[in-house]
Computed example of a mutant assay.
Amino acid sequence: MPQTLNFQQVDVFSTAPTQGNPLAVVIGADGLSDAQMAAFARWTNLSETTFLLRPTHPEADYRVRIFTTTRELPFAGHPTLGSCFVWLDSGGQPKAEEVVQECGAGLVRIRRDGARLAFAAPALLRSGAVEDEVLDTIAAGLKIQRSQIVASQWADNGPGWVAVMLDSREELLAIRPDYPALKGLNVGIVARWTGPDAEADFEVRALTGDLGAEDPVTGSLNASLAQWLIPAGLAPRTYSARQGTVLGHKGQVGVEQIGEQIWVSGQVQKCVEGNVTL
């Protein structure tokens, strides 16, 4: 029997609509099957689609399931902030000052700061040095010389990110990737943005080798980058990042380390609101 559910499409990590990363959110999706969720996520053809459900953990305010067009993710950053925005906008009331989201990766804390939301970066599933053969694959996929990679680290908090740093923003923006050559690797690229025209401290790009596409603005990658860059002394405890430039977007991501916890923040804009029948 078809169900009609409330629905929103929002733009995450953006101070104005259409400049960040779009997210589709279905509200009250407890009655949907896994197959229905996966089919709708394929149909939206967005990088992620989420489904809000009743929590199963006593500390959680809501539960979210996160789907790409091909698989379900345990955690992702812009779906976390976008789903929280929609949950609050739909009348959700957190049990405490912080919102607690339940997802496949566990419980994620979310802070509200005026128009901004910030999630606590989850622990990395994999970190450490990147193998030589993997760096060779990345260099081939980015169509650059291996020597242009000035630093690297596994930085996986769910989607499988491996991160590399380039010497300049100009080098980063010039990359036109060969996705088949990446052999399914999800590669995050970061470079400092210097000079009088700098509008952020870093420029970031997210190349999803498993999908063969670039993600406009990526919370999970920015979270894992911060967990590498700050302890390594490559970034200060508070910084900003721009992402999506090559795609014509102006994603704005804030990063702040408070104590031992890293928070990733951004604004969310409501673009579409209505009903969906599934």
Rank of each mutant, 00 (worst) to 15 (best):
T50F: 07
Q243A: 14
A163S: 15
E131W: 04
Q9D: 06
T238A: 14
A41H: 09
G188M: 00
L207T: 05
A226R: 06
F119K: 00
V134Y: 14
L52A: 08
P177Q: 00
P216W: 07
P79Q: 04
D167S: 12
L225P: 03
L207W: 10
P180N: 05
E171H: 10
D61A: 03
V86H: 04
Q8V: 01
F13R: 12
Q19F: 13
T218I: 09
D136K: 03
G128D: 15
Q148V: 01
A123M: 09
P22W: 09
Q145D: 14
D197H: 14
V26K: 07
L221S: 03
D197N: 12
A163G: 03
T137M: 02
G248V: 15
V86Y: 04
S220V: 02
L135I: 00
A206C: 15
A16N: 12
T56M: 07
S220E: 04
V187A: 01
V99H: 07
T277E: 11
W43Y: 08
V134H: 09
L278E: 09
W43G: 11
F67I: 05
R42Q: 15
L207G: 08
P177M: 01
L52T: 06
S265F: 02
E48H: 06
N45S: 13
L211K: 13
L182C: 04
L81I: 08
T80R: 06
P177L: 00
D132P: 15
L185D: 15
S224W: 02
T208Q: 15
R42I: 09
R146F: 00
E273A: 10
H78W: 10
M37N: 02
P196K: 09
V164L: 13
T218Q: 12
L166G: 00
H78G: 13
S127G: 12
A191W: 02
K183V: 07
V12H: 03
V108T: 03
E199W: 03
N186G: 05
A151Y: 09
G160A: 13
A174D: 09
I230F: 09
V130T: 13
L81R: 02
Q9S: 08
R176H: 06
S127K: 12
L53M: 10
P159V: 07
V134A: 10
G20N: 11
L247N: 09
A123V: 09
A120S: 11
Q148A: 15
D215I: 03
R242I: 00
G92N: 05
R126P: 13
G77P: 04
I230T: 02
E256Q: 14
W87S: 05
R205P: 14
R242T: 05
F67G: 11
L182Y: 08
G128C: 14
L173E: 07
I149H: 04
V25A: 05
E102C: 07
H57E: 13
P79L: 05
A129F: 12
R242L: 14
A235N: 01
G212F: 08
I138H: 15
I144S: 01
W263G: 00
V164W: 10
R111T: 03
T70C: 14
G244I: 10
T49E: 06
G266F: 04
I138K: 15
F13Q: 11
T80I: 10
G254M: 08
K270V: 02
K183N: 14
A24D: 09
